[in-house]
Design a protein around this nucleic acid. Sequence first.
DNA 1: AATGAATGAGGGTTCATTCAT
DNA 2: TATGAATGAACCCTCATTCAT
Lengths: 195, 195, 195, 195
Amino acid sequence: MARNPRLRDHVAKGLLDTAARVLAERGEQAGMTDIAEAAGVARATLYRYFPNRDALLEALTETALAELAERIADAHLDTVPIPEAIARLTRAMVGATSKYRGLVIFRKPPDVAKEADRHFTGPLGDLFARGAAEGAFRQDLPPTVLVELYIALLEGAISRVLQGRLGTEEASTAITKVFLQGALNGRNGSGPPGL
Amino acid sequence: MARNPRLRDHVAKGLLDTAARVLAERGEQAGMTDIAEAAGVARATLYRYFPNRDALLEALTETALAELAERIADAHLDTVPIPEAIARLTRAMVGATSKYRGLVIFRKPPDVAKEADRHFTGPLGDLFARGAAEGAFRQDLPPTVLVELYIALLEGAISRVLQGRLGTEEASTAITKVFLQGALNGRNGSGPPGL
Amino acid sequence: MARNPRLRDHVAKGLLDTAARVLAERGEQAGMTDIAEAAGVARATLYRYFPNRDALLEALTETALAELAERIADAHLDTVPIPEAIARLTRAMVGATSKYRGLVIFRKPPDVAKEADRHFTGPLGDLFARGAAEGAFRQDLPPTVLVELYIALLEGAISRVLQGRLGTEEASTAITKVFLQGALNGRNGSGPPGL
Amino acid sequence: MARNPRLRDHVAKGLLDTAARVLAERGEQAGMTDIAEAAGVARATLYRYFPNRDALLEALTETALAELAERIADAHLDTVPIPEAIARLTRAMVGATSKYRGLVIFRKPPDVAKEADRHFTGPLGDLFARGAAEGAFRQDLPPTVLVELYIALLEGAISRVLQGRLGTEEASTAITKVFLQGALNGRNGSGPPGL
DNA sequence: AATGAATGAGGGTTCATTCAT
DNA sequence: TATGAATGAACCCTCATTCAT
């Protein structure tokens, strides 16, 4: 009785996990039926935990973003040079998102914008802002565009990881390498340090 | 009666155009009703031309890919150096897709794989194969991965163009620059040294 | 083709008839399923004619009230003395409503108020206003209360007719007699001694 | 343990009170959830006292009718003349029902018939039987019909009281007056001219 | 050939009811 | 005993698809 809320949260988490998996497999058009079925509960039970489909999706997004934020925080991006920071960020995101399927995280911008901005664009924006301030990036493209391209690479990589067309490590390494070489400022002749 | 097939094809083309427009406007969840309505015909008529929704989407993909292939062919990629080829290819793709909305072109991979491979992976694969043969690409990543990343960038760029977050030219230029600097082999003195 | 609208209206009328019957039988909580089933069509077909449950109920009410209004108009209440007018009105209403079940006509006041006022309260109000003006009614009760009681009698009578506990004629006669003797002005020496 | 049944009955009574209140407020479509919530117990607890919704409604009706019967008994209808008896009866019923909301008492006839007949039709039937025997009622309508009309007036009055369209006293007085004048035997020279 | 009409299957949601603690 | 959790059945509604004209 004392850990009733605990239990409840635990079940809810389990349902979210299942939902993540099912949405990843069947696509965003998977129905409540599919999710409930996959979770081994009745549809009505699913509704006990999430009052409607949107609530579930929202909770899913929130969870995914929270996990992501935690990983990003753990990476202490602000204590290392830009290249290393991007390498860490990439690994964090590709790793974290393999579970929550890119499509969920990178869903309709208006829908997630609020939460995403809080958890995600924040740190990422900080990182790129620092890079720009340090003159680490190439000067012929605005940092905002670089951010967009980086996210595009991430999305693509995550999507391919989820499809099994790329391994997690392989994908992380590849986009880190390509993006760093492609985006960093090569003026010091040095180039990014080895990964 | 002799040009019945002609006429039929012509009408089908018109329906596909409408479908492309409606799907672009209303998103992939636009219904047959919307399409038929927008085309000014009855739903049943739409079904006379495309036996079911999937057939329509397939035809749409096919058409889009064909248009794309034409543009790519027109670019004569094989007559110019790799960097220029990639620049042309990028412009062609970003430009072409504005009509058929990325989501249609880059639909569920298993669905489109067949057609895409025929029209699209073909030339694109040729290009990257030539690049690999010429040693134009960095050696620490397999060409297939580079192709994936390139496509990821394209998808992201197109998506952002469609959302109005990036201009067509801006997007083309940016991904060309970043991808080239990031993917090309820097041994010829340019770019940062290999990672 | 020419009588397409005709046909459509005809079918819609049929569905309304069935709906009236089913709602009368199963009560207001009868579902779209019941109605469609009773009409021998698929539920989706029912929705072709009435976009949702409320629309159907509204149409039903409207139809019932229209029929009622027609009957009332035919009765030319303003050409006869009050007692005869009330007798006619009663017959008209009890007769008309046997089909559309009182519950439909006398539904939630806020819901039907608009239409009801237009068709129904109008003539009825006129009649009682005239009666009041002529001094036909007893003076110890306000005419508005008399209207309410009259309607209450009507509702009760109709309900009992629908339940088969009273015959149509029997009910009409009874409430006419009782209401007239009870509501008319007995100044002509009649009426039981005062309470 | 000895007064377990006592306690049980006491709780059940409390639940019925709450149910009466909630049903009066939210209408007959109030759910078990609403009732349990308003009573401050879990839904399952409600089910321990009333095995299902119908049982609860039945118990509610039973209670209401019992209360009614008590009031009627208190009125000692058989000790006063018919007109006074009807006046008392009317006040008793209109007053009593404010709590149990007419809709509960006058529910689907087949459902309540059993109970109603036992508690309610009994005394009321007795009253009208006496009236008929005394020759108090008009002779041109059978007493059974008069009973029906009287109940119809009661229902209507109660309903209007509950809707706030009529005051309790106002309603009681009005239907008493109208019904008496309308139903009593006018042999003493009264009555409106023949229809 | 084109269409209005009809439909079955499914989607989200609610609610009375049962189960297990 | 009281309760939170779980559930199945039903409801309203939509949409891709088929039928008959």
